[in-house]
């Protein structure tokens, strides 16, 4: 069974295209990272999932329920941390959770959830409108966890959280996934996606430009290996001759005697041989995988 199925979803605001024929399938049980720079259309897509906006074309289903026509049924089995929300005025944190519990017809214990998301009991008795952004984020995550949802839909979940809070958020995402929940979350921060996701989709200008596993994305970059070589000395013209080698994309001298070369996997040996032939002794070398950040920049041409 698929958790999310989007067919050719487009959303236009006048002449502006916010989503352009997005096709996406998220299988049950996976952690899917929805990645893209700000304004790429991530929130628009999630708004379509939640029926806050209706698509100009195409359709989206959650567990087989059309998000527009059967919105309530689609939202029965999901927990949501939306973007651009605010908490209710004059209601305590605990009352927020009780509202979510009644709305989902669940029987969770508010105290347990508060503990899980790291809100202490005294905070829970305060009005939520006095909370900091980070506390509000924890509270609404708590509301999302109510009723053991089969799908967690988190829009920029680490907004307003400190690094510690972000790590706790990742732990909760993993715990929920181990319980059996599918997780779909959007982010413009690469490390977070890299840390927990099985698969990622990269959205750029409303178009889904790539959907793959992180390894798959790396491979599609043609190896994408970075070679860091320490040598005893640099001879004149060495750098130039390394750049001549087939498969080498860039070669730069970092410090006194360190070379950084990005190249395809096959070119690694050729580089070492070339250095040897030039009479340069290799003291040390290591390879690094291209980071997701490099890929991200490659795909979107923007970075963050």
């Amino acid at each position: 069974m698929t958790a999310i199925e989007a067919n050719e979803v487009s959303k236009r605001y006048g002449t502006v295209v916010a989503l352009d024929r997005v096709d996406l399938t998220v299988a049950e049980g996976e952690i899917f990272g929805f990645l893209g720079p700000n304004g790429a259309g991530k929130s628009t897509f999630i708004n379509v999932l939640l029926d806050f906006v209706s698509p100009s074309d195409g359709s989206v289903e959650i567990f087989g329920h059309d998000c527009h026509a059967e919105g309530v049924a689609a939202r029965k089995r999901i927990g949501v941390l939306p973007e651009g929300y605010s908490v209710f005025e004059r209601r305590t944190g605990r009352q927020h959770l009780e509202y979510a519990i009644r709305s989902k017809e669940a029987d969770d214990d508010p105290a347990e959830i508060l503990d899980r998301v790291g809100l202490d009991p005294t905070d829970a008795e305060r009005e939520a409108s006095d909370y900091s952004k980070g506390m509000a984020q924890r509270l609404v995550l708590g509301m999302a966890l109510v009723g053991e949802p089969d799908l967690l839909l988190l829009d920029e979940p680490t907004t307003g959280l400190d690094p510690n809070g972000a790590a706790e958020m990742r732990d909760i995402i993993r715990e929920e996934n181990e319980r059996g929940a599918t997780v779909f979350f959007s982010s413009h921060i690469l490390e977070q996606v890299e840390a927990v996701c099985d698969r990622v989709g990269i959205l750029q200008g409303g178009e889904l430009v790539a959907v793959d596993t992180i390894e798959g994305l790396r491979e599609s970059l043609g190896g994408g290996t970075k070679l860091v070589i320490t040598v005893d000395h640099m001879a004149n013209g060495t750098l130039a001759s390394v750049r001549e080698i087939q498969g080498v994309e860039t070669a730069v001298e970092r410090e006194e005697s360190t070379l950084e070369v990005t190249c395809t996997n096959d070119a690694k040996m050729d580089i070492l041989v070339e250095l040897h032939d030039a009479g340069v002794d290799v003291v040390n070398f290591r390879t690094e995988e291209a980071s997701l950040e490099d890929m991200f920049i490659e795909y979107t041409g923007t970075g963050r």
């Binding site: 029926d51 939202r75 949501v80 927020h96 979510a100 709305s103 989902k104 609404v140």
Partner: peptide, 12 residues
């Protein structure tokens, strides 16, 4: 304020 988003994220 955006509180409506919380209500409509729930099965309402």
């Amino acid at each position: 304020s955006g509180a409506l988003r919380l209500s409509l994220s729930l099965p309402h």
